[in-house]
Design a protein around this nucleic acid. Structure first.
Lengths: 222, 222
DNA sequence: GTCTATAATTGGATAGAC
DNA sequence: GTCTATCCAATTATAGAC
């Protein structure tokens, strides 16, 4: 942890002390949240101790519990951040777009998220597989509303004849499940293909294949 | 626990005592394995105590640890059972089949498994998301071999012009991810659709939609 | 705000009676 | 084979010094 202030030139005004202190406070919270995400997504909530998180975040356990009053509060804080990030790509869907482009772009964005931030996807997966016991209400609230609006977009495309008739929820589930598969089951993907999304060739191959399967299917058009 | 022997008619020979004892032994093992699967798949390994499992299986903790020498051994026993069950549907794929029928039948079978035995799918998911730390070697061994043989089947279909050119692994991943989604994320599916696979109407709707998406895609054939 | 005890529980595993 | 009692390690959370 370098202290940049010691090299700051005299003519650059230092930030007011109050703001600096708050900045440090926020930085530390972020460090703890980041460490918590890493470990929770690897070992689950119950497989991770506050001590482990504190060690990774380079703070003492006592200090961690000053920033987050309990392990459960910390876990919920991590999840809350996640949901926003996780929903983001779906928001861009709009009826004015060309469905092939909109869905194609969505697939790429979700695969980018699986490549760049697999921990988020994995923790979300762990929580949902276990029935989202701590998260259920918030889930139904924000997610339900967004999904219904996007289902309407899909229905509009179908009504225009720009998409084959398909129940929107199943299409959304398919898009979610396949794109997240490359993050959540990365161990399996690597064991079977010998490659990961970090490999640009494999990433583009994945985007192209998923797009083809969802958009055109696997049966020859003949 | 009823003792059926007390009502057995005299002319029906009782099984030899040694065999009877072994039967009881196996029954109890199965009861413990079943309880373990239920709880591990709900709360994860670390979220489940030996005590919890013993209580659900209606044995004492001491007795449970007579049947399985440690919690880890029990967990691995559960996983081993699972892998066989999980791989089964893929074995039926063969090059002599019509690809549309083979893939369509596979989708139905996997969705049946997601409906009838969601716990197995969920525990498998939990283990893999966390990197399969206890399971990695066994995974690569049996799974890799089977998947390579099935990838060859898919390649043969493509060579015959019976399937659009697609990288076989990505098709397999798509099939796995979407069919398991309905088991692993059942909470979310129900929150968003208000229905579950236990509802026969929803089950058939799901089979039909997944088949359509994978086989024909969502773009109109025009 | 940060750290070092320490209290209070819980959980895995063993010992030994029956 | 089965159960109870017990040991020991790990963990969450708090108390109190600095």
């Amino acid at each position: 942890m370098e202290e940049s202030s010691q090299t700051r030139p005299e003519d650059a005004a230092p930030p007011p002390p109050a703001r600096r202190r708050q900045q440090q406070f926020e930085d530390k919270r972020k460090a703890i949240l980041g460490a918590a995400l890493t470990l929770f997504s690897q070992k689950g909530v119950h497989g991770t101790s506050v001590d482990n998180i504190a060690a990774l975040a380079e703070v003492s356990k006592g200090n961690l519990l000053y920033y987050f009053e309990s392990k459960e509060v910390l876990y919920l804080s991590v999840l809350r951040q996640l949901l926003a990030l996780w929903l983001e790509p779906l928001r861009t869907f709009s009826a004015s777009q060309n469905p092939a482009e909109a869905i194609g772009a969505y697939i790429r964005r979700k695969l980018e998220a699986s490549r760049d931030d697999p921990q988020a996807s994995r923790l979300f997966c762990l929580e949902l597989v276990q029935g989202a016991p701590l998260f259920g209400e918030e889930l139904s609230l924000e997610l339900r509303d967004l999904v219904e609006r996007k289902a309407d977009v899909i229905r509009a495309w179908i009504a225009d004849g720009r998409l084959s008739p398909v129940e929107p929820h199943h299409l959304i589930f398919t898009l979610w499940s396949i794109t997240q598969h490359y993050a959540d089951f990365a161990v399996q993907v690597e064991a079977l293909t010998g490659r990961t999304l970090a490999d640009p060739g494999f990433f583009e191959e994945t985007v192209a294949n998923v797009r083809q399967i969802i958009l055109s299917g696997v049966l020859p058009r003949a």
